[in-house]
Design a protein around this nucleic acid. Structure first.
Lengths: 120, 120
DNA sequence: ATATTACATGAATAAGTATTCAGATGAGGT
DNA sequence: ACCTCATCTGAATACTTATTCATGTAATAT
């Protein structure tokens, strides 16, 4: 190490070559934020259940709140989060609002996750 | 609807057939908890960066803290979270502890997510 | 033995977040 | 016009969590 590339953390055991290479290949901060936001959305049990419901069928808010046995307000708040992240889309029909998954990728991410836990 | 399957929420617009069918096909609560825990782990920027580093190479704690320019303690705390969820494994060698991704699935989930945000 | 290094850990604090409650909006029916 | 129903929304609260700080531990070097 010897020379001090590391002003912030005074740790001396650094494997310079690896550190340098991996640091070069870092994700852009913007991508990290976007990506972690999406995973965070999947990371709440309620939202995960909602997404899993919508994976099976388009549905209105009251359907979801009936299935999950939770208040309509709680579901609505969570749907807003999912909407803002463009994980779900909605369509108005009379008094009802129908939600569905926005993208095939959402399917895949869900399935990949499910396959993982089955595998443990 | 007429009959009251819905004691918890007194909403009356339920599409009984869909609700019934989707409720049958629900994930087990245990699976939901496990799966959301894993996604939640991916949902923190720091942890996501750590995982992305380890995707490229096995690494010791101080390497990671150098790359992310964060305190060794912060990294260590997060590594514990990842360890508890079995997303990373570790190997001791002298004073150093080397971390790496535990499973091919972790790769895939990361990549699937990345592909998603590239696609927006 | 003593000092140093790499890492782990408990406690504390600050920031974030999920749900509830109360109320608002907007569409339909009477 | 009035009421009901489906949904949304802001505020409040209770809970979770990420980082820091201080300290502990185990391995190595002197």
């Amino acid at each position: 190490m010897s020379n001090n590339e590391n002003i912030l953390c005074d740790i001396t055991c650094i494997h310079e070559d690896i550190v340098h290479k991996v640091k070069e290949a870092s994700l852009r901060e913007e991508d990290v934020q976007n990506l972690s936001s999406i995973f965070k959305a999947f990371g709440d049990p309620t939202r995960l259940k909602i997404l899993y419901c919508l994976k099976q069928s388009e549905m209105c808010v009251c359907d979801i709140s009936a299935i999950l046995e939770m208040s309509q307000s709680a579901i609505s708040h969570q749907l807003r989060v999912l909407r803002n992240l463009r994980l779900v889309k909605h369509r108005k029909e009379g008094k009802n609002v129908y939600y569905s998954l926005d993208d095939e990728h959402i399917f895949k991410i869900l399935d990949e996750g499910l396959e993982h836990i089955r595998h443990i």
